[in-house]
């Protein structure tokens, strides 16, 4: 049985990890009917990394992503995000952590229908209580950063798939998160658009130093990431950082 290899001891030159998971397990259901989706994950990620999480369906990669994104509670183990013990946070505290530090993009874009691109991007700022004028200028800035200046008034149905995903990216980065979680971000896009979106993510990672954690099952998409981990049967089976001998 393979053990996880993303141990922090394997990562030289890091004093402080942004994400530090130790022995994380996740069990769905209870007793005999319980299903152990994650069976002991050790994973360390430094600020500014671009990490691809790969694995077949049912491997536990989505569960891992949800735990990393503070959307779910771990069953056991420890998870430090920027030094914060996430496993001890309650639902409200996890919401606030997401609000101020994390950004999300999804395979299905998940924009609000019949709502302009600008208002979609403003959404996280509304929950942050950002004032009207600043909200608008921040949202315009984020849309410009993803190459959608001039499309502020368009609703999702008036935008192409690639443009919708750009709006979603703008929404995720508008509040300057430390980490961007991308769940199959190009799953619904053609190859040309996929390349554009991946270039945009790479750009955000390099120029803004945003840490990106991306779930994907396509090798050429994963190739944009600086590091790839493979999840299998609830464990990290392979970690390119380890293999490359960092």
């Amino acid at each position: 049985m393979t053990t996880s290899r993303g141990n922090r001891d394997d990562l030289p030159g890091t004093q402080q990890l942004l994400i530090d998971m130790q022995g994380v397990r996740k069990v769905y259901g209870q007793g005999d009917a319980g299903f152990e989706a994650l069976r002991g994950i050790d994973l360390g990620i430094r600020q500014g990394e671009f990490l691809a999480i790969m694995g077949p369906s049912g491997s536990g990669k989505s569960t891992l992503m949800n735990l990393l994104g503070c959307l779910d509670r771990l069953s056991s183990g420890s998870y430090r995000y920027a030094g914060i013990a996430v496993e001890r946070l309650n639902a409200v505290q996890r919401s606030l952590l997401r609000r101020y530090h994390l950004g999300f993009i999804f395979q299905g874009f998940n924009l609000l229908e019949r709502t302009s691109a600008l208002e979609n991007v403003e959404l996280p700022l509304l929950y942050r209580g950002v004032k009207r004028a600043q909200r608008s200028s921040m949202a315009r800035g984020a849309l410009a950063a993803v190459g959608l200046a001039g499309k502020e008034a368009n609703s999702p149905s008036e935008l192409s798939g690639g443009q919708q995903q750009r709006v979603a990216i703008a929404r995720a980065i508008v509040s300057n998160p430390t980490t961007l979680f991308a769940d199959e971000p190009t799953g619904n896009l053609d190859s040309v658009t996929t390349a554009e979106i991946m270039n945009l993510l790479t750009h955000l990672n390099r120029e803004r130093g945003i840490t990106i954690l991306m779930v994907t099952h396509e090798d050429d998409v994963a190739a944009h990431a600086g590091r790839t981990i493979h999840v299998m049967d609830g464990l990290i089976e392979r970690d390119s950082a380890r293999n490359a001998g960092f």
Partner: peptide, 16 residues
């Protein structure tokens, strides 16, 4: 439901 999921993911609390 999906819209509520989006709001929760980007940091809305249950109370909000």
């Amino acid at each position: 439901t999906r819209e509520i999921g989006i709001r929760l993911a980007i940091g809305a609390t249950a109370r909000e």
